[in-house]
Design a protein around this nucleic acid. Structure first.
Length: 445
RNA sequence: GGAGGGAUCGCACAGUGGCCGAGUGCGCCCGCCUGCUAAGCGGGUGGGGGGCUAAAAGCCCCCUCGCGGGUUCGAAUCCCGCUCCCUCCGCCA
């Protein structure tokens, strides 16, 4: 949510931001509704002010009238005066009724319109419309060369018996999968290792519920826009997380953080659920896009002036995971047209998947500036007694499990179809160095 | 699932229709007093919004007693609905 103050004072800035994003938004209507809202506010408050004064005097007169010590004539005079005031007050209340309804309507409309404006892109975000305008900022690692045509992960997985697509369909339908044996174990190792990895870099581990109230989705910016992409329990109005970002944002919803509590860094492992709309006939093979997946998410609450450097650090933390795993990857700065609604700047991190022959988005790191914080009402004080200010929030995957698994399997595949386990994961797999077919060995104690 | 109790300015509570324009204690801040500290004394102490002003400072006003409706000239207070918390019983990984 943008600051209404900004829209009032600098509508040109907002208009220009919309153009850069190639986004349509009802800015003119918003400005007009805001003007109306302020007009109604003024009218309503003027009347309320008079009514409050009358009420006060009516109260005083009532006490006088009921006081037997007071002279009868004076009490009668007070009675007349009171009747006049009550009549006037009654009239004002009548007038208010209509005005308050108008005010409320304007307010609701204003809020509705405000929710339709996306965040202002950071000046450093390249201008552009689509994927082709994204900027590859840097690349790490050379794609491995193979003496044979590298296999895609679904072939490797089938050969190794670690991903069971049929079982996924049997249990839950298409775009679900079952990990078996070394596959399940490898994912679990990745999760544990990544949590430890980020904790060691200063993030605090959090385990939130996977089901959250509708309010979290509204305040987190997911409703109403993304309702059709999420799963929900209708009976209780509980929503399944599409990403831990929702839960982590809401952790400090409606709070004023005390001086000295920033920055706050969180790392959370959660399942993520997405009701993706898969285009019929354009099959996405393997586990690249699924309805349920695991993700280790990074999240930061920081002071406004630090958010850009915090974004760079966040990207670095996500990249460090891939470096440690030895997976070639590149960092892509999204152009204005590709930016998410809440983001002022976003870097995607893409891992090279030699078998699939494509760069896979394994992480998306965004600086949401004060946009998300304003909507979720997350503020902080610089000093005791200082005015509360909105924090800046940042989020990024660190990393998403299925695509990390894809990249790992495809990069570390051997000619015979076995897959080498990257060194950092071995302690989490009781020292296991290679995954071979039908590998169901029990973990050493 | 059943029964009952509760939600008030950081915390603990008071307040059952107009003297509440929300009070008391604690905490916190400022000052006074004081070898130091503690105590004592005095003052202050939430959030949101609108307006005046070139702007800041400042001033005026409105809203905010869990949330939303209603009754009333007037609601923290009365009525209805909802949410959350607590206690007990039942059930249960």
């Amino acid at each position: 949510m943008l600051s209404l103050q900004l829209i009032r004072d600098h509508p040109d800035v907002v208009r220009e931001a919309l153009q850069r994003r190639h986004a349509q938004a009802p800015l003119d209507e918003l400005i007009e509704v805001d003007r109306l809202w302020r007009q109604y506010t003024h009218q309503v408050e003027t009347i309320r002010s008079e009514r409050n004064a009358l009420s006060k005097e009516i109260g005083q007169l009532s006490r006088l009238i009921n006081d037997p010590q007071v002279d009868v004539r004076e009490r009668r005079r007070a009675q007349h005066r009171r009747d006049d005031l009550v009549a006037r007050s009654s009239f004002l209340s009548q007038q208010l009724e209509g005005l308050e309804a108008q005010l409320k309507e304007a307010e609701a409309r204003l809020h509705q319109l405000l929710l339709q404006l996306p965040n202002i892109p950071h000046p450093r975000v390249p201008l552009g419309e689509g994927e082709k305008d994204n900027l590859v900022v840097r690349q790490w690692g050379d794609p491995p060369s193979f003496t044979y045509t590298p296999r895609p992960h679904w072939e490797l997985a089938e050969h190794l018996g670690i991903i069971d697509f049929q079982a996924g369909v049997k249990l839950s339908g298409s775009h679900f999968y079952v990990l078996r044996g070394a596959g399940a174990r490898l994912q679990r190792a990745l999760i544990s290792w990544m949590l430890d990895f980020h904790t060691a870099r200063g993030y605090k581990e959090v385990y939130p519920p996977a089901l959250v109230r509708g309010e979290c989705m509204w305040k987190g910016g997911w409703l109403p826009t993304f309702a059709e992409f999420m799963y929900r329990d209708a009976e209780e109005d509980l929503w399944l997380l599409p990403t831990a970002e929702v839960a982590l944002t809401n952790l400090h919803r409606d709070e004023i953080l005390s001086p000295g509590s920033l920055p706050i860094y969180y790392v959370a492992y959660t399942p993520c659920f997405r009701r993706e709309k898969f285009t019929a006939g354009r099959e996405v093979r393997g586990i690249k896009r699924v309805h349920q997946f695991d993700k280790v998410e990074l999240y930061k609450f920081v002071e406004p002036e630090r958010s850009q450097e915090e974004l760079e650090a966040l990207v670095e933390d996500a990249c460090a995971v891939l470096r440690a795993l030895g997976i070639p990857h590149r960092v892509v700065l999204l152009c204005t047209g590709e930016l998410g609604f809440s983001a002022a700047m976003t870097y995607d991190i893409e891992a090279w998947a030699p078998g699939s022959g494509e760069w896979l988005e394994v992480s998306s790191c965004s600086n949401c500036t004060d946009f998300q914080a304003r909507r979720a009402n997350i503020r902080f004080r610089r000093e005791k007694g200082a005015r509360p200010e909105f924090v800046h929030t940042l989020n990024g995957s660190g990393l998403a499990l299925p695509r990390t698994m894809i990249a790992l399997l495809e990069n570390y595949q051997q000619a015979d179809g076995a897959v080498i386990v990257p060194a950092p994961l071995r302690p989490y797999l009781a020292g296991q160095e290679v995954i071979t077919p039908d590998d169901d060995r029990p973990l050493a104690p």
